[in-house]
Structure formats: C-alpha cells, structure tokens
Design a protein around this nucleic acid. Structure first.
Lengths: 224, 224
DNA sequence: CGTGCCATGAGGGTCGCCCCTGAGGACCCC
DNA sequence: GGGGTCCTCAGGGGCGACCCTCATGGCACG
C-alpha cells in the first residue's frame, strides 16, 4: 500500500533530489501528492491533501519564523481519509538539540538529518506512517534524555522557560536582542518602570544577573 | 560543446536534485564527471578530473572548517586539458556577506544561492565556464562594493579594524563578549579608568554608541 | 470570598556605562 | 629635541541598568 507524502522544503532542488531518489530506491511505495516551499503554502497543501506523512524542513521562510513548528501548529487535528492523524517527519540539516526538541514538542513523529540515505529515508517514512517514532542514531540519545524519566539538561531548559509568563518572555526577547528599556517600553506600549519589573522577574527566575548573561542564555538556546 | 562539471555538496540528495534538474533543463549541455561530499574528496576528484567548472557548497565537513575555501585553496593552479583554469561556482544556502567575500577572495568566479532555478543555474555554469563572474542579483551589489574602486562598507570593515590599536582591540574583544569594565580591568591588569578610555576610543573609531552595538558589530564579523 | 499570580506602575537607591577634559611617561620618526 | 601616537590614569557628570518596596486592578482557583 502506498504512502501519500507531502514534501516541504524551501529549496526546489533539494525537493527534486528527495523525490528522485525515493522513487528510485522504493518504486511504487510513495505517492508524492504535494510540495511547498514556505509555511503558508505547506499548511494549505496539507489541509487539502490530508497526506499520511509530511516530510518537513525545520527552517522555513514564512510564519512567525519558527518554520516547521509553525506548519505543525497550523495543521493540528488534520486527519487522513482513513482517520489516522497526519504524521510529521522532520528532515533537517541541523542536529541542534533545540531544533529537535522544538519540533518534537510541536508534534513531529521523527527527526532525521539530510545526510540520510534514500533507502533509510524510505524505511523511516514507512515507520512513521505506521505510527512509529524515528530518529537518526546520533539524535536518539538526547531525545530519550529529554523526554525520559531522568530528565536531562534539555528538559530543564524548558522548565525554566516555562516559569516565565508570556509577557516576561516577550520582554526577555527584546532585552536579549539589545533593546534598551526605553525602546522596549515604546515597542510594547508600557512604561519603563513596568519593563524594569519584568526584567527583574526574568533575571530572578532564570538566576541570571545581567542582560549580557541573558543574551548569552538566549543565544545558547537559539531563542534569538 | 559540453561543460565538464564536478559537484561538491555534503548532502547526497541535494546532489541528486542538482543533477536531475540540470540534465532536464539543459540536456546534453553538462557532463557530470565527479562528485564529492567533503573537502578531501573534493580536492582529489578535482585534481583527477580537471573539470571546467566546480559547483561547490560553501559549508562542508573536513579540512580546517572553512569548507569551500579549503577546497579552492587545495586546487590552486589546477588546469583543464585545454589549459584554462578550473572555475569555481559557489552554491550555498547562505547569503551572509562574510561567506560570499571569503569564497570570492579564495578564487571563486561566482556565487549563487540554492534557491536558484535549474535554468538559471545552467546559464550561470555556462557563463562561469566562459570566464564570466556570476552573482545572484541580491549579492551582486555588495560584491561590487567590496571589490570595486569605490570601496563600500565591506572593504571598510578591515580599514576600521586597522585603525584600532592593539590594546584597543584587546579591550574591544572582552567588552564585546559581555565583560564588565571592572572585569576587563582585572583581566588586563589596568585600572577601570583606562578601560573606559579604551572603550571610548573604540566606540568613537568604529562610530558606535554602545557596547551592545559593539557586540553586534563583532559578531557580524565573526570576531567573537 | 480570600489567596495568589500576573500586568501595570511609582519612588528611591546603588552601581555600571559613556562622555568630556586633562595629564604624565614611553616610544618612534624626522 | 620637537611632533606624533600610544598607554596609562584621574575627576566629574549624565544617564541607563538593576534592585528594593509598595500599590492597584484583573483573573483564576478553591
């Protein structure tokens, strides 16, 4: 039985490469029913085609800048004709923990890097379509760490981030980018004093002591 | 007359995409005589095949970590059977000025991003083989700025950096990394007041107005 | 209906950042 | 020996960053 696949990547030639190699490596197994090069197109194609599996690049133009995460969020609840949920398999050049965690939290069922061979990719697609989760060997370790019982450092990061309120995260992002308090105040239409309060809370909650450490913290987690 | 091409990219599927699309878009025009996925293989394939054009990803595993630049440096003086130099055409996801400048300085004859269409890429290869230089429209501007008579901002970067004294550069590096004046003073065994003087000089010479801009400036030039 | 969290904002204080002026000693070049 | 540049340092002032306490109103949870 064939697997209906939508392919999302902003590089046309990479899409051709994936298509060509998969059709050669596993003839008749995959039915490519759509492609997209940005977040908006991806969401509409997926909603229209209701594929079994979406092959998805993590870094995409469009949306709020979170690429693959935005696509998945935009397709919550979409089901195939058979009633199974649409499965997402992330296909990325990045093996950064933050990217992996983000897209898995968003709901992807697997994550493989673009160095994968065509035959391995074909079997990964088959397994994801069947409901399995698939990860490149190098990634499997810390994915288990992050979601397992003994939560490692990656999981703790998000716990810390979760302790911040929405407004605090908003202020934090601007401060980490080098905005002055005055500029943040103008941007968010609040007073400088309120900005100071939020910044103090953020620094206290994250156990940091200056905006420079905050910048380093945010950069280390690819939040900016 | 066909153009002999070597294709260097660390993603197997992207290579397939390029091959497939170019053979479709311009049948009989290109003769793919070799491929490589890392710096070492690329150099040996190019030396063996002596192609007319090398299509080259900027970011590659192997070598000293400078990817495409290492490949070009490793192939200095290699000529085709006809006696023409081997031409390099960079093909990259990055449109960062630093990447472009670095690979052009190393000797590449062109730089196009991976969003290019197959027909445009085919004509770019033709022109590079003929000795022309080819750049994506978005990149052409600052490449000309950087290498032209009226040196633009990229060329000035080094001039600006040269205007700093050795001590000033030293202080700048620490400040840009987020060190406080006190910490810089302790690190360099000088007084806080001296640090202030140096920082003022640096900011004035670089026409910046705060340590945050300095951080951004230094990061943009990969100095930290 | 109290309790708590959140967003907002104020007053007041310490300290860091950045600027200006000024100055002495070391070194180099003509 | 007199510019020129660099490194060193000081005083003083304006303003931003960060802290503390305190106060208000909204909203949710029990």
């Amino acid at each position: 039985m064939t697997v209906r696949v939508v392919l999302v990547d902003d590089h046309h030639m990479f899409r051709t490469g994936v298509r060509t190699e998969l059709l050669e490596a596993a003839p008749g197994f995959i039915d490519f029913v759509g492609e997209a090069a940005n977040v908006e197109d991806a969401v509409s194609v997926i909603r229209r085609e209701e594929p079994d599996v979406v092959l998805l690049d993590v870094h995409l133009p469009g949306g709020t800048g979170h690429g693959g995460v935005d696509v998945i969020h935009g397709c919550l609840g979409v089901e195939t004709a058979a009633g199974a949920p649409v499965r997402f398999l992330a296909l990325s050049v990045s093996d950064a923990a933050e990217d992996v965690i983000a897209v898995i939290r968003a709901g992807a069922r697997g994550y493989v890097t673009k160095t994968i061979s065509a035959t391995d990719l074909a079997s990964a697609i088959r397994r994801v379509a069947d409901g399995d989760a698939v990860f490149s060997p190098r990634l499997a370790g810390f994915v288990l760490d992050a979601f397992g019982v003994a939560a490692g450092e990656i999981a703790e990061v998000d716990e810390e981030l979760d302790r911040l309120s929405a407004r605090e995260r908003e202020v934090m992002r601007l401060i980490a980018r080098g905005y002055q308090y005055k500029e943040v105040a103008k941007e968010l239409f609040i007073s400088v004093k309120t900005v100071e309060t939020h910044v103090s809370s953020v620094l206290r909650k994250l156990q940091l002591s200056s905006r420079h450490e905050l910048t380093a913290w945010a950069m280390g987690r690819r939040l900016i």
